[in-house]
């Protein structure tokens, strides 16, 4: 009798291994959609969960790593300081695949210092901001990404300038900067797959409405508002290195970006010509869309070839954490030489 073959991915693993615990976030929370896309992307790309480390800070967003990739190691760090923990883990073992999940408060307020320096280093990590413009876990206070004029449920108006994490990341040297919307399944999935093919820092700001504290009229991070003001820069398609697919397109209509692992990112141009390898155009576009009250989404800036942090540090190829003693303790002759120099 024939048994129904189990569904597995390219490395022979079942979807179950990519799932996590049951979410404790509010029903309809944008963060849950992001967790689902992460599960799909890691499964479809055939990433070994044993090699993945999930990192987060504190907040609703930072709880979410418990809800995906349950067979991977996770570290819920302290508020705003996940970048340093992720940096340490990657220095210890550069074979790991790091995914960090943060929020707009965890990144833009308490964690802005570590965020800034993470972007400068080009550490191999996928850094996701689940961005809802408010503090959910402490019941709805404004966060630093709340837009000018956006209101709280109780009518309080934000009159402070928002931090545009994408513009900041580009200015600081991040090599893969994208923005998406938790409701745009296709775009987000392709961006996550592309992120897995990038060697360096991926900064992915995902607008992810808070259904409990920031989904009302007057909020610029509500589902309705974001849906109406989402301005995709391009149509994002992704061809992984392990799929031999030829895509037909009109010359000049698609920009192809070759990723670090051989995958291809295909960016179909929409209304106007947008080149995400042009830093200046990227910055201008972010400012222009923001002035119009819109969100530019898609790949905003990409630089696939820059050396990552470990390469800059010229670290050996093997994980530092498991180097044997004979490679980490210099011989007696070295100590003798040092002692002699001090006599």
């Amino acid at each position: 009798m024939a048994t129904v073959p189990l569904k597995v991915n390219r490395i022979g693993l079942e979807p179950q291994l990519y799932k996590g615990g049951k979410t404790t976030l509010c029903a309809g929370c944008g963060h849950n959609s992001i967790s689902e896309r992460i599960i799909e992307a890691f499964y479809e790309m055939g990433v070994d969960p044993q090699q993945v480390v999930k990192l987060s800070g504190i907040g609703c967003s930072s709880k979410s790593p418990a809800y995906f990739l349950g067979s991977s190691h996770g570290f819920n760090a302290v508020h705003g300081r996940m970048p340093s923990v992720g940096t340490g883990a990657m220095l210890a073992n550069q074979k790991l695949i790091a995914i960090g999940v943060s929020g707009d408060g965890d990144t833009g307020a308490i964690g802005i210092g570590q965020f800034v320096h993470l972007m400068r280093r080009n550490l191999p990590i996928i850094y996701i901001i689940e961005d809802n413009g408010c503090y959910g876990l402490t019941k709805g206070q404004f966060s630093p990404t709340a837009d000018l004029g956006s209101t709280l449920k109780n009518g309080v108006v934000n009159d402070l300038q928002p931090i545009d994490t994408c513009a900041l990341a580009i200015q600081l040297g991040a090599t893969f900067v994208a923005r998406s919307f938790s409701g745009d399944k296709k775009q987000l999935l392709n961006l996550l797959k592309a992120a897995l093919s990038h060697r360096g820092t991926v900064m992915l700001d995902v607008i992810s409405p808070c259904v409990t504290f920031n989904d009302h009229e007057g909020s610029t991070k509500s589902y309705a508002y974001v849906k109406d003001h989402d301005d995709p820069l391009e149509e994002v398609s992704f061809v992984p290195f392990f799929e031999d697919i030829t895509v037909e397109y009109e010359p000049g209509s698609v920009q192809e970006v070759k990723m670090h692992d051989g995958s291809r990112l295909l960016l179909k141009k929409l209304d106007e010509a947008y080149d995400p390898t042009d830093k200046i155009q990227a910055m201008r576009t972010l400012h222009e869309t923001s002035r119009r009250g819109e969100f530019a989404t898609g790949i905003i800036y990409i630089e696939p070839d820059r050396d990552d942090f470990l390469k800059q540090l010229n670290v050996v190829d093997e994980p530092l954490a498991s180097l044997p003693l004979d490679r980490t303790r210099p011989p007696q002759a070295a100590l003798d030489e040092i002692m002699e120099s001090l006599r």
Partner: peptide, 11 residues
């Protein structure tokens, strides 16, 4: 933070 991340990962 880096030291704790590295220690956690075995270094």
């Amino acid at each position: 933070g880096m030291v704790i991340g590295a220690g956690w990962a075995g270094a």
